[in-house]
C-alpha cells in the first residue's frame, strides 16, 4: 500500500443472501470507529440495509450512493451522512437498483466506485463496503475498489454453495480490474454449535481454507436472536449491548482487523 494516509478498504461480500454481510459490515464499522479510527461505511446494496440498521429512513434520503455513482457532478462527499456512532455512512436505497443498468453504460463501469472514492481517501483510516447478494456490477465495483474482501458465510450446508463461484469472481476481478485484491478471510456466521450441521460445515470450511490457503477467522459469530433485534434499537449490536456474546465475538474479529493480522 502507498502512503500512511491511505485507508484500508474492506468489501464484505458473498452473493448468497442472508449470510450476515450487512450485520458484519455495520458492526465491524462501529467497532473500528469505537477504536478511534476514521471510518466510512459505503452501502452498495439497493436494500439499504446499513441505513436501516442505524434507524434511518432510506426513502427520505435526499441523496444516496446512487447519485454519486451515476452523476458526474456528485461526489461521495456529497452523499455521506454522519451517524450517531462516530462513523460516516454513504447510504443506499432502492434507487441503486437502477444504477445497475445506468452503470453498465459508463466507460470502465467496473471502476466507478474506485474512482469516486479517490477524493475522500485521505479522510478515512478504513472504508467498509457492504455489497448486495449478487455478483453484478455493484459487487464488481465494490471488489474493484477494495484492498481486501471479508467473506461472511453462515454456518449451514447450503451456504457453502456458491463459495467457489465467489472465489472465481475474486480471481476474475484481480485479473481484470484490481490485481492487488486480497482475501482478508472467511468469517463463519450464524454458527449454532448445538447442531451437527453447523459443526460439520465449520470443519469442512476449515479443511477447505487450509487447502486453499485462505484465512478462516478463528472467531466464529454464533447464532443469536439479538442480532435481529438490534436494528429495532437503531443501534449496532456491538454498541447497543457490548456485554452480549455476539458483541464480544465481533470485537475479536475487529481486533484482528485492527492489528493488521488479516
Amino acid at each position: 500500500m502507498a502512503g500512511a494516509s491511505q485507508p484500508t478498504i474492506i468489501a464484505v461480500a458473498n452473493q448468497k443472501g442472508g449470510v450476515a454481510k450487512t450485520t458484519t459490515a455495520v458492526n465491524l464499522t462501529a467497532l473500528l470507529a469505537l477504536a478511534g479510527k476514521r471510518v466510512l461505511l459505503v452501502d452498495m446494496d439497493p436494500q439499504g440495509g446499513c441505513a436501516v440498521c442505524l434507524g434511518m429512513d432510506t426513502e427520505a434520503l435526499e441523496r444516496s450512493i446512487y447519485d454519486a455513482l451515476v452523476k458526474p457532478e456528485v461526489g461521495i462527499a456529497d452523499v455521506v451522512v454522519p451517524t450517531a456512532f462516530d462513523f460516516d455512512l454513504a447510504p443506499a436505497n432502492i434507487d441503486l437498483a437502477g444504477a445497475e443498468i445506468e452503470l453498465k453504460q459508463a466507460l470502465a463501469a467496473e471502476t466507478v466506485l474506485q474512482r469516486k472514492l479517490k477524493p475522500v481517501l485521505d479522510k478515512y483510516d478504513y472504508i467498509v463496503i457492504d455489497t448486495p447478494p449478487s455478483l453484478g456490477i455493484l459487487t464488481v465495483n465494490s471488489l474493484t475498489a477494495a484492498d481486501k474482501v471479508l467473506i461472511p458465510i453462515s454456518a449451514e450446508y447450503m451456504a457453502l454453495r456458491g463459495l467457489r463461484m465467489l472465489l472465481d469472481t475474486l480471481e476474475n476481478v484481480r485479473e481484470v480490474t484490481n490485481p492487488g485484491l486480497k482475501i482478508m478471510g472467511i468469517l463463519a456466521t450464524r454458527y449454532d454449535g448445538r447442531t451437527i450441521n453447523s459443526r460439520e460445515v465449520y470443519e469442512y470450511l476449515r479443511e477447505f481454507c487450509e487447502r486453499e490457503g485462505l484465512h478462516l477467522f478463528p472467531q466464529v459469530i454464533k447464532q443469536s436472536v439479538r442480532f435481529a433485534e438490534a436494528p429495532g434499537y437503531q443501534t449496532p449490536l456491538v454498541i447497543w449491548r457490548k456485554d452480549l456474546d455476539g458483541a464480544k465475538q465481533y470485537q475479536k474479529v475487529a481486533e484482528e482487523v485492527i492489528n493488521g493480522e488479516v
Partner: peptide, 24 residues
C-alpha cells in the same frame, strides 16, 4: 460431508478483458 460445487470452477463474472477496461 462433501460439497462438489466447491471443487468445480465457475464462470467469469466480468465478461471483459483487462485490455478492454484499460482502454476505456
Amino acid at each position: 460431508f462433501v460439497f462438489p460445487e466447491l471443487e468445480s470452477r465457475g464462470r467469469r463474472t466480468i465478461l471483459r478483458t483487462t485490455e478492454e477496461v484499460s482502454a476505456e
